[in-house]
Write a protein that binds this DNA or RNA. Structure first.
Lengths: 230, 230
DNA sequence: CTATTTATCAATCCAAAGATGTAAGACAAA
DNA sequence: TTTGTCTTACATCTTTGGATTGATAAATAG
């Protein structure tokens, strides 16, 4: 059932014409991949991708004209099934993180050895994700830093723990945008009872109105809390 | 200024006593690390960590008694500066993702070769983050999947785009829990003007009250939108 | 078994929020 | 210039929200 393995088709996008030519020669001479297109324009690149349906795109993400990251996002949204490898001159953690977040299958530095670029393409072509060790470390430092606050608030003593089960139910319906009548209807209790619960919630969360209560709930892992317990 | 390099101190936590003993012997015999403690209890492990301040903890995350992931979270919150390597029998993407999210500096499978475990410790001891290639791929697949919806909604046509600049300002203050008076004060305009803006926002977002407007904003990347543009 | 907590409901009362219509000045585009 | 949009503003009216007090039954903890 598996189709015959053919040469992967590659599209190159790099606003630096010299570098573009260099990479093209490298791939043509030292690998068995087909370069089906090469352009210095991001917009043109998107069009070529739609036209030639390459397996892999090597995309420079440091382009002045149009942001390479944005182009990656566009390509992913088109859902062409193409695997994008980000090419960059910078090993900036934020850049790496954003590229991977947007769906890049690899991130390689322009300063890397030719052999390593070919290796990266091989890995990505075979369905894996390729990030050099050093960049993996950078990525994770950034990743963990961005989750650190969240991890702390989610276990920290928070006022939500003082709510009773019923109050949590009411609060959940509040976080779904219900008014008193809506909540009363969904819980099969009177509107005045709902008011009582909501007032108790305000006291416990030390807020003045429902919007603040909802914001408190969302900012303090209310949804997560339930998901974890479930 | 750099202090003399000493042997890294390691603490082992694994509810499987046999495996615990095996790893201890491996490290003692085939590496130059000091095993300063070894326990089958997660709670005891946390205490030992506080007492002996190891450089590295090898933590089994598949323990029935207490969740290893939860223990990692506790350790990170204590901020002991210890580097935790997650040890697991499973290469489940969700497990890997959660471990790394909580701050693990590495994730190795129990089925991996001894030499690779030592290598992982070496890497982590030197300040890097270690994930075997195969697990890195799994991690990123999970990572990118979890961001896919977000990436789509953030570019999708959404009702927020119809808001004027001023309305966005007002909405932002709404998402911070302000009432009419608060918004009027912060924007130096009258309360009735704020009401006008808010009503227009309701029309454009097709909602009935401020809570729904705030929820719509938060669920459709309102904060992100601003951060990205800035 | 009693004291406390929880869930339920009600009656007020006032404040805040929301709906609707109107309108003037600024400014930009056609 | 005219047209349209945006921002500002006000009046009026209705509905909803929030605070307070009090009360009852059931469950739970000590």
């Amino acid at each position: 059932m598996r189709e015959f393995k053919r040469k992967s088709r590659i599209l190159l996008i790099d606003d630096n014409a010299d570098h573009l030519r260099g990479v093209k020669e490298l791939i043509t001479l030292e690998s068995s991949y087909d370069v089906v297109g090469a352009t210095t324009s991001a917009n043109m690149g998107t069009n070529l991708a739609k036209k030639y349906r390459p397996d892999i795109i090597l995309m420079d993400i440091n382009m002045p004209e149009k942001d390479g990251l944005q182009t990656i996002q566009e390509l992913e949204k088109l859902d062409l099934g193409v695997k994008v490898i980000a090419l960059s001159g910078y090993d900036d953690a934020d850049l790496i993180f954003r590229a991977m977040k947007l769906g890049a299958k690899g991130y390689v530095l322009k300063t890397m050895a030719s052999a390593q670029l070919i290796y990266a393409i091989d890995e990505v072509a075979s369905g894996k994700i390729y990030l050099p060790t050093a960049l993996t470390s950078r990525f994770f430092e950034y990743f963990q830093r961005s989750f650190k606050e969240e991890a702390q608030t989610s276990t920290e003593e928070n006022l939500l723990t003082y709510l009773t089960a019923r109050e949590e139910e009411v609060l959940e319906l509040l976080t779904q945008g219900n008014n008193y009548k809506g909540i009363a209807g969904k819980l099969f209790i009177s509107e005045t009872t709902v008011k009582t619960h909501v007032n108790n919630i305000f006291q416990k969360l030390q807020v003045n109105d429902r919007t603040q209560a909802v914001l408190y709930a969302l900012n303090n892992g209310f949804a997560n809390r339930k998901a974890i317990r479930a």
